[in-house]
Nucleic acid binder design. Structure first.
Length: 433
RNA sequence: GGAGAGGUGGCUGAGUGGUCGAAAGCGACGGUUUGCUAAACCGUUGUACGGGUUACACUGUACCGGGGGUUCGAAUCCCCCCCUCUCCGCCA
């Protein structure tokens, strides 16, 4: 959430920077300002009225103590009217505030000044490239062909038991998925010093609002219902990423400055409705309703946010380096960035069978945008409460990593060579049909 | 699902509808004393949003799980909701 005070004092800057997202949000600023002004005026008046009511009530208490009921009665009559006015104004303030906040919750974060202004993914600058596209002496197969021939995934039966957009890992496929989860968690906890978290896979509405998924994108997520009790619908939601529960761990808290930076990593499945996206790149496991991901979350002091973002990206890149997968890093331009983010790096891994780069990680600094929404603060040495920066990044998404891995390590005979780092987990050199 | 208990400041824990933003204790911070430490003693010690000031000072409002209600006035009375704990049932 944007800071109302900042909007009030720097309306032009806010409008300009929102405009770079090409979503038209800058047009809502005038309305926010009008509502804010209305609220402040009413609030000033009602506070004054309350001050006088409090004073008179206190006097009544004193008169009662002095056994002067007649004088007390007189004062009661005087205050009764003030009370009505207060009730009316309180109601007005609450309504206006609610309208203002509803608008504010719909506004995306301001892009960092350093981010390139652009419209679509075409405008995203490439930051760096690691490794190179592997060469093949044969025509590389797609992961769909390989997974079927090696019986790593049973697409047909996945559809039978859950529908399209779900993955049924079998035998070596299941073991490979588990090996990857293990490897990534070990890497981030043992070598990158993140604290491992295993959070709930269902969260309440506040968490969804906290990270910026609600209220604007409600339709992209799964809500759950308990049994046939429709009244339970809308209370819990399947997490679309571990960011949702983990970033909210300290919601409503005031942390000590010495606790920062906090680094968490968590493996969770991720559930996404992807409404309307069906049909676009849906073959196989590129876009699915449930996928595994190891997520990295950081809570940092504002001045350290961007340095920590660079480290976070490096931590995610390490995954691909260890697996020997060619990738590139791009920085998202203003028009391509997510709602809550001020700066985002995407890591895209090369999938030879597809002949394309796949996004396996998105690392963002949301600055204090999410911290404000969840009212998470930290107390500085001087006793001041400040909002920390909250960062998140995939480290990494597993389904697409699986695709790149299978397509990169395929052999002419249709088997897979297991990369060195995974051998201890899989206890084999090669996966064959 | 059934029965019961409870939610008050950083923590523990008082609180007859009226000088209650809230006793007391602990902790923390500052000070006095002191070879050092400890102890003792004295003092300070919540958050948010406003007004005010160069900055302080000072000052207004709200906050005792959340939301409503009664009242001139609510931590206290009434209603609804949420959460936690204990026991029982069911269950991985």
């Amino acid at each position: 959430m944007l800071d109302v005070k900042f909007i009030r004092e720097h309306a032009d800057i806010v409008r300009q920077r929102l405009a770079t997202r090409n979503a038209g949000d800058e047009l809502k600023i005038d309305q926010v300002l009008a509502l804010d002004e209305q609220r402040r005026t009413a609030l000033a008046e009602v506070e004054q009225l309350k001050a006088s009511r409090n004073r008179i009530s206190k006097e009544i208490g004193i008169l009662m103590g002095q056994k002067k009921p007649a004088e007390a009665e007189a004062k009661k009559t005087e205050t009764r009217q003030i009370g009505d006015r207060i009730t009316a104004l309180d109601k007005l303030v609450a309504e206006v505030e609610q309208q203002r906040d509803a608008l504010l919750l719909q506004l995306p974060n301001l892009p960092c000044e350093k981010v390139k202004i652009g419209k679509t993914a075409e405008d995203n600058p490439e930051v760096r490239v690691w490794g190179q596209k592997p060469g093949f002496s044969f025509k590389p197969k797609t992961h769909v062909e390989l997974c079927e021939s090696l019986k790593l995934i049973d697409f047909a039966r996945a559809a039978k038991i859950s529908g399209s957009g779900f993955i049924l890992y079998t035998h070596w496929g299941a073991r490979l998925e588990r090996a990857l989860i293990q490897m990534l968690l070990n890497l981030h906890t043992l070598e990158h010093d993140y604290t491992e978290i295993s959070p709930p896979f269902m969260v309440n509405r506040d968490c969804m609002v906290g990270v910026g998924q609600f209220p604007k994108f409600v339709d992209q997520y799964y809500g759950v219902q308990e049994g046939t009790d429709a009244s339970t619908l809308g209370k819990l939601f399947l997490i679309p990423t571990a960011e949702t529960p983990v970033a909210n761990i300290h919601r409503e808290e005031i942390l000590k400055e010495s606790q920062l930076p906090i680094r968490y990593c968590a493996y969770t499945p991720c559930f996404r409705g992807e409404a309307g996206a069906a049909g676009v790149g849906t073959r196989g496991m590129i876009r699915v309703h449930q996928f595994d991901k190891v997520e990295l979350i950081k809570i940092t002091k504002p001045e350290e946010g961007y340095a920590e973002l660079e480290k976070l990206v490096a931590n995610a890149e390490r995954v691909l380096q260890l697996l020997g997968l060619h990738y590139r890093v791009v920085q998202l331009c203003t028009g391509d960035m997510g709602f809550s983010s001020a700066m985002t790096y995407d890591i895209e891994v090369w999938a030879p069978g597809q002949g394309t780069y796949l996004e396996v990680s998105s690392c963002s600094n949301c600055e204090d945008f999410q911290a404000r929404r969840m009212n998470l603060r930290f107390k500085t040495e001087t006793g001041e409460n400040k909002f920390p920066h909250i960062l998140n990044g995939s480290g990494t998404a597993l389904a697409r990593l699986f695709v790149a891995l299978v397509e990169t390590y395929q052999q002419a005979d249709g088997s897979l060579v297991v990369p060195e780092v995974l051998k201890p987990y899989l206890k084999t050199d090669r996966i064959t049909a």
